[in-house]
Amino acid sequence: MLNSFMQMRLKGLVILAVIILILPLFMSNPFHYDMATQIAIIAATVVGLNLLVGYAGQISLGHAGFFGIGAYFSAVMTSNYDWPPLPTLLLAAALVGVIAWIVGRPILKLKGHYLSMATLAVGFIIAIIINNEGWITGGPDGMPVPSFSVFGWELSSFNQYSFLGMEVNGYKAWYFFAGLLLLLAVWVAQNIIDSPIGRALRSVHGSEVAARVVGVDTARYKSLVFVISAVYASLMGSFYAHFTGFITPHIASFEHSIVLITMVVLGGMASTFGVILGAAVLKLLPQVLADFQELEMMMFGLILMLTMIFMPKGLLPTAQKLLKKKMSRKKVEEQA
């Protein structure tokens, strides 16, 4: 009994791992792998954002800014100054953590929509700097990024690897690496949720007054989760930069921030696997809608609106609820 939640977590992780392993059977070309790898990296970002939005109930409209810092810090330092990728990526994450703490600490003492305003502003400022400081970031045209490497071992989509006697293409290697990152991101997120820290966070969303009278320093916990979610974004931003090999300021833009938070809400707030689904759907939807050409934008907006109106809890929680209803009905019928 005690472990029902733990079993659930394990089940989720195993299912996710199986999906990652099976998916290659349905992917036939490098483009599919490229898409799947991007989805995995973005999904890991969103899993972190969900800790803030879904569990602690705080809105960030600037997470792409943190993603952008991670990506550009890694890109600039590894290409212009020949820093090694892994320490650079960790340093970027630490930097973002500090920025998030400085911004979050005073703002999260307030109640209301203030974090959304502050994050919107921070995100914009980051994007503007990246756009304007072309001498180091390449400006609106973007910049190339060296491939990721650890201890002299290089991970590139264009390499060939042999693994246990098998020949593996670089893009496949990246896919599995990104899958591993996603699993790790989910594992850590679940560890946070199912802990005293996680309970404190969820109580902030459930009843902030209750949280305070049982001794939760709500401002501190909100800042903590804000920092954690920003660090997630920075790490994944760095990986994204190394993977794609070329980045533009768009990844730090307000539009991208909106896409990220939409993935959370669409997939299902406070549902770790839901937001992964949200990331996949929102990444794939434009591909599907591209066939409609000038109707694309209108249809995207319409789908977004309708989903949120009719499934305000998000895709996965709604589906789970339907499934549960169906199963219990079946049970009743069987008993009758």
Binding site: T262, M269, M297, M298, G301, M305, I309, P312
Partner: peptide
């Protein structure tokens, strides 16, 4: 969607703005 979370409502208005922009573009 009045029962929905504030974030959900915000996303709905974002969806609406994209929709309106899409029609305007058309």
């Amino acid at each position: 969607a009045k029962q929905a979370d504030v974030v959900t409502l915000i996303i709905i208005t974002i969806g609406a703005s994209i929709f309106i922009r899409g029609i305007a573009q058309l």
